Computed example of a mutant assay.
Amino acid sequence: MTLRAIKTTVLLAAAFLSSTNLSFADDGCNGQAAAVVQRAYPDAVKASDTTFKVKELAITLPAEGAVEDDPHAVICRVWPAYPELMLVAVPLIGGQSDDGNAGDLELLVLDADSLGVRQRLFLAGRMTDDAVRITRLAFDTARYRLSPKQIAFGLRIFQHGSSGPNPFGEVGLSLYTIADGKLTSVLSGITVSDNHGEWDTNCAGTFDESSRTLSMQPTVHHGYADILVSETSSTTVASVAANGECVEQRNGPKKTTLLLTYDGREYTVPENIRSLE
């Protein structure tokens, strides 16, 4: 792989991460997005065929037949572990500009048949970004079994930087569960894909890539299963040889593991693998 190809990979890897599992899986509103918004936000005012306004915040409906995901559009997904429930993420956007976006995010758990809201969790400022933009939201409904009777779901947030000399891509995963009748966060922002680098836009540079998978363990702390994080990372260094050719050296892959334990409030994620907020 050439360094130029590696740069492209850095910019796009997050968008394609786990695409076989996640791509298009969040187009699960099945034409009911407007009804979902009207049930969850009775004061919402229809501003156009694809948008509602809640006070000064905009809610965008998913576009039918869209080729690319709109990171500011509502996403829905029936929860496979509990098929009577539908998961919904509602971006509430207050402002958009070339310099960045401002907004919140609300997660809803609905009755899949009636669309009645069972639980909701408001995440203030979660859709706010600047030079590093949020480019996609996706539900992750792998069976994150916290206890014999309790399963969490995930939300992945894809982010990309626009700098040519310093390309950056990241996918952050947070986990949520229903406990005591309330929707609550149990793991806030672990980076499951990280691609970044620095180069002269011609040849010389260094790129780092890492990916992480989570697997539930039989050991338990404070009632919730431990989570084993398996990491694979590599570094590619390129330089100009004496003959003027661009020479690349890839170091890795390096494999490591880390155990996350629940402290009674959340799973503690080390700072170096926490995702951007």
Rank of each mutant, 00 (worst) to 15 (best):
T9D: 13
L146W: 09
F122N: 07
Y262M: 03
T8G: 10
T191C: 06
N243Q: 05
Q32W: 07
L11C: 03
E84L: 05
R136I: 03
K255Y: 03
E56S: 14
L228H: 02
L107H: 04
L87W: 10
A40G: 05
D98M: 10
M1R: 08
V247W: 04
S147E: 13
Y82C: 03
K53T: 08
P83E: 15
D263C: 03
R4I: 09
G205Q: 03
L57G: 00
I93H: 01
D49K: 12
A89C: 13
E209V: 00
L87P: 08
S19L: 12
G205E: 01
M1F: 05
V247I: 09
E271N: 12
S147V: 09
L110Q: 05
G252L: 02
T50E: 10
R39E: 08
A152F: 10
E277N: 14
V186Y: 07
Q249P: 00
A5Y: 07
P270Y: 13
G65F: 11
A138L: 10
L146Y: 07
L155M: 11
I157C: 07
A238R: 04
Q150P: 01
A138H: 06
E84M: 06
K55W: 09
N166R: 15
E68Q: 14
A35E: 15
Y224M: 13
P71I: 07
Y267C: 08
L22H: 11
Q96R: 15
L137R: 07
D49T: 11
R212A: 11
G223Y: 11
P253D: 08
V237P: 02
R120P: 04
A102E: 12
I6D: 06
A66F: 09
P80N: 09
A179G: 00
H72E: 10
G172H: 03
L121N: 05
E68F: 15
E248M: 12
L175Y: 07
S163R: 15
S211M: 03
